[in-house]
């Protein structure tokens, strides 16, 4: 069980990294708009695929 003397400090370092990443995300406005980007990714570049759709129909 002595392994926990190694594993727990490692997990603490991970926690520190997570907290740092979270604070960075908050600071750089990642939580600004939680809805928009989810839709955007579906709509971008769809022009190309719909043109393909049209050409198939012809």
């Amino acid at each position: 069980m002595e392994i926990i003397y190694l594993l727990i400090p490692v997990s603490l370092i991970l926690v520190a990294v997570i907290v740092y990443a979270l604070f960075w995300a908050i600071k750089s406005d990642q939580f600004e708009d939680l809805e928009g980007p989810g839709h955007q990714i579906l709509m971008d570049d769809d022009r190309i695929s719909s043109e393909e759709d049209n050409s198939e129909n012809h």
Binding site: V15, I18, V19, L22, F23, I26, F31
Partner: peptide, 11 residues
């Protein structure tokens, strides 16, 4: 507030 909630959640 987000930082405080995040920190208390993760820890």
């Amino acid at each position: 507030q987000l930082r405080r909630i995040g920190l208390s959640g993760v820890l």
